[in-house]
Write a protein that binds this DNA or RNA. Structure first.
Lengths: 181, 181
DNA sequence: GGTTGCATGTAAATGGTTACATGATTGT
DNA sequence: ACAATCATGTAACCATTTACATGCAACC
């Protein structure tokens, strides 16, 4: 799924500027499904505009660059639908956290504990944000489904870390000592 | 985490060729934590060799290119440890599947069902492979921890899809009909 | 006084994917 | 016959990240 399709998707939910599209991949309902940076979004939007997939309206602002608000055209909407009909590429995950934990025995136990605690705190934070979302009931079925999926996964991950943290640390402490003997 | 560090990590588990390193990111215990393609692994290995991070032993084979088996040097091992001490980059996920489900209302209900069913089957397959792994008890604590983490997440994801599939399809069917009226 | 949020964009550099090149053997 | 497994490697292409460029307002 390239950045252009991603932008089309966001614009299907409503008109937005490049800045707002970026935010929706950071905090919005699409966060953690995909990513996109400014350096990818702005060129994508320009190209979509050239191709007639989106319309652009400029709004002058005081002491700031004009705000360019993009909206999906009919052509853009059907391009999005086409993309949605293609076979999904397999998920791609890159987790430095899990890679590090995989080598737990190479890490000092305190560092291991700090790593896990930071991750639990991160899950707590995002779960808080996701559950305190008010306008959820009004959103379309697909959005609510994906939201529920995220909640489920994050809760399961957090619970696993809490439940198994102590055992991992104990094992690594034990291994450290027998190695030192 | 770049491909070089990834290779160092795999080699820490035991000597391996480029081909075998690739496999460990596809089927092995590191699958779904990170990815690496041949085009990334072979140059990484060459560079690691130049830098003295790994040693390379060539084994002649009949009717096949020589097999080059790499092993970690002391320098390589400490480079891996250094990488493990840096702050982990935030996880990166790219899920076309979730992106598509997010726009469930734009998809025909049958396609939606097929998408979900394929994903459930995928989870079943990988869970089967992960649970039938025999030599697990002998592996280091970190590897078992990450393995358990993966199992937990995949089970939670699969269960969520099974539990909420019908409700999503019903809602989308309902929305289709009211749109047609 | 420093950071964050708003707001757009470009350019260089990095890094990775994909396709190609080669080729025997084993299984369906 | 065709696909998959084993086995390495290169090169062109593509995409993204990162840094740069600009600048005000609000908050701490």
């Amino acid at each position: 799924m390239d950045t252009r399709t991603l932008c089309l998707g966001v614009l299907n939910r409503g008109d937005a500027s490049g800045y707002e599209i970026k935010k929706s991949f950071e905090e919005g309902p699409l966060a953690h499904i995909h990513e996109a940076s400014f350096g990818a979004i702005y060129p994508a939007l320009t190209r979509l505009s050239d191709e007639g997939m989106v319309d652009c309206h400029e709004y002058a602002q005081d002491k700031r660059p004009d705000k360019k608000v993009y909206s999906l055209t009919e052509k853009g909407r059907s391009a999005l639908e086409d993309a949605l009909h293609a076979a999904p590429a397999p998920d791609k995950v890159r987790s430095d956290f899990l890679f590090m934990l995989f080598f737990a025995q190479l890490l000092p136990v305190e560092r291991l504990a700090a790593l896990i605690d930071a991750r639990i705190a991160w899950y707590d934070e995002i779960l808080e944000r996701m559950t305190s979302c008010e306008e959820l009931p009004k959103r379309p079925a697909g959005e609510r489904f994906v939201h529920g999926f995220g909640l489920t996964i994050y809760r399961a991950a957090r619970d696993y870390l809490i439940k198994n943290r102590a055992a991992l640390l104990a094992e690594c402490r034990g291994a450290d000592q027998s190695a030192a003997e």
